[in-house]
Lab assay of single mutants.
Amino acid sequence: RSVMTEEYKVPDGMVGFIIGRGGEQISRIQQESGCKIQIAPDSGGLPERSCMLTGTPESVQSAKRLLDQIVE
């Protein structure tokens, strides 16, 4: 099973929602998708923050879907 890492951008203002209280939302996304998510510590003043998604292609797709649901 191939593991890939893909960069994915999320709106900087939504990072708090994505991480959730005490990190529980991001933990849930990682468990549900099976994908490891690393969010950049800051956006460098840009409107979007970079996330690194690491996992199988299916888990990366799944994580993107879950992130999109939060961001919308």
Rank of each mutant, 00 (worst) to 15 (best):
L46P: 04
V71W: 06
E48F: 12
K9L: 08
G45F: 08
V10K: 01
K36N: 08
E72K: 04
G20A: 08
E24Y: 08
R65D: 10
G55I: 00
Q31S: 11
G16E: 14
I26Y: 03
F17I: 10
I19F: 09
T54A: 07
P41L: 03
L66Y: 07
G20C: 03
I29H: 01
C51G: 01
G55E: 00
Y8P: 00
A40Q: 10
T56K: 11
S50T: 12
E6S: 13
G44E: 14
R28P: 01
D68W: 10
L53E: 00
S62Q: 12
E6Y: 09
I37K: 00
S27Y: 07
E24R: 13
R1K: 07
Q25C: 09
Y8L: 08
R21T: 06
R65A: 14
R28W: 05
F17R: 15
S33R: 01
E24N: 03
P57H: 04
C35W: 00
L66R: 09
Q61F: 11
K64S: 04
L53R: 00
D42L: 06
E7G: 05
V71G: 08
I37V: 10
V60L: 13
S43P: 02
A63I: 02
E48S: 09
D42T: 09
I29L: 12
M4K: 09
T54H: 09
S33M: 01
S59Y: 01
E72H: 13
L67N: 01
A63Q: 01
G44V: 09
I19V: 14
E58W: 04
Q25I: 09
R65Y: 09
Q30G: 03
I18C: 04
E48A: 10
D68M: 13
V60Y: 01
T5N: 08
G13F: 04
E7W: 09
R65K: 13
P47R: 09
R21V: 05
E24S: 11
Q25T: 10
K36H: 10
T5P: 02
I19H: 08
R1H: 02
E6L: 11
L67E: 01
K64Y: 02
P47G: 12
L67P: 01
G44N: 12
Y8T: 04
C51L: 12
K36M: 09
M14E: 04
E6A: 04
R65N: 13
K9P: 05
S59E: 14
I18N: 02
V15I: 07
V71N: 06
V3F: 07
P41S: 12
G45L: 05
C51E: 00
L53Q: 00
P47C: 08
G45I: 04
E24C: 07
M52N: 07
Q61Y: 09
Q61P: 01
L66T: 08
L67K: 01
R49Q: 07
T5G: 05
G20W: 02
E7V: 05
G16C: 07
E6K: 13
M52E: 09
K36G: 09
K36I: 07
T56L: 08
S62K: 14
I29V: 11
E72Y: 13
A40V: 06
K36V: 12
I18G: 03
Q38D: 10
A63K: 00
G16L: 05
G44M: 13
G44I: 08
M4P: 02
S2V: 10
G44D: 12
S59P: 01
Q25N: 05
D42P: 14
E72A: 15
Q25M: 11
D12Q: 11
R65G: 11
L53F: 02
G20Y: 02
E6V: 08
V3P: 06
G16V: 05
E72V: 15
I26M: 07
C51K: 00
I18K: 02
G23I: 03
S43Q: 15
I26Q: 06
E32Q: 08
I19W: 10
I18H: 02
Q38E: 15
D42N: 11
S43N: 10
I26L: 15
L46A: 12
G16R: 13
Q31P: 00
K9W: 07
V60I: 15
M4V: 10
D12F: 08
Y8R: 02
I19G: 07
T56G: 06
I26S: 02
S2I: 07
S59F: 01
G34D: 06
I39G: 01
M4D: 07
V71S: 07
R49G: 06
L66E: 12
M52G: 04
K64M: 08
I26C: 05
P11V: 03
G55M: 00
R21Q: 15
D12H: 10
M4R: 03
M52D: 04
S2R: 14
G22F: 05
C35P: 00
R49C: 03
C35M: 00
P11H: 03
D42V: 07
P41F: 03
G13P: 12
Y8S: 02
E32C: 06
V3H: 10
K64N: 02
Q38M: 10
S62C: 15
G23F: 03
K64F: 02
Q30W: 15
K36A: 12
L67G: 01
S59H: 08
E58C: 03
S43H: 08
I70C: 14
G22N: 15
M14H: 04
L67S: 01
Q25W: 04
P57Y: 09
I70V: 14
V60T: 04
T5H: 09
A63G: 08
R28H: 12
G22M: 04
I29S: 01
E48W: 14
S50P: 10
C35F: 00
R28T: 08
P47Y: 04
C35E: 00
I29K: 00
G20M: 03
E48D: 08
T54V: 09
I29D: 00
L53P: 00
D68R: 12
G22Y: 04
S59I: 02
V3G: 06
P47L: 12
K64Q: 05
K64H: 04
L66P: 01
V15H: 04
G44K: 11
I39W: 05
I39C: 05
E7A: 07
E7T: 11
P41Y: 03
E32G: 03
V15T: 04
R1I: 14
F17W: 13
G22I: 06
M4H: 07
Q25D: 07
S27D: 10
S50R: 13
I19T: 12
M52S: 14
D42Q: 09
A63T: 02
V15Y: 04
E72C: 11
S27W: 09
R49S: 06
E6R: 12
I39E: 02
A63R: 00
G34A: 05
I18R: 02
P57I: 06
P57K: 10
S50V: 12
Q61R: 14
A63E: 00
I39D: 01
G16Y: 05
V3N: 14
L66N: 05
G13A: 13
S33G: 01
T56H: 08
R1L: 04
E6G: 06
C35D: 00
E58Q: 14
I37S: 01
E6N: 03
M52L: 14
T5K: 13
I29R: 00
R1S: 05
R28A: 08
P47D: 13
S50I: 15
E7M: 02
D42H: 10
E32R: 08
G34R: 07
M52F: 13
I19R: 10
I26A: 04
G22A: 09
S33V: 02
K64C: 04
K9V: 05
I70W: 12
V15R: 03
M4W: 03
D68E: 12
G45K: 06
R28S: 10
P41W: 02
G34C: 06
I26W: 03
E7P: 05
I70E: 14
V3C: 09
I18S: 02
C35Q: 00
S33T: 11
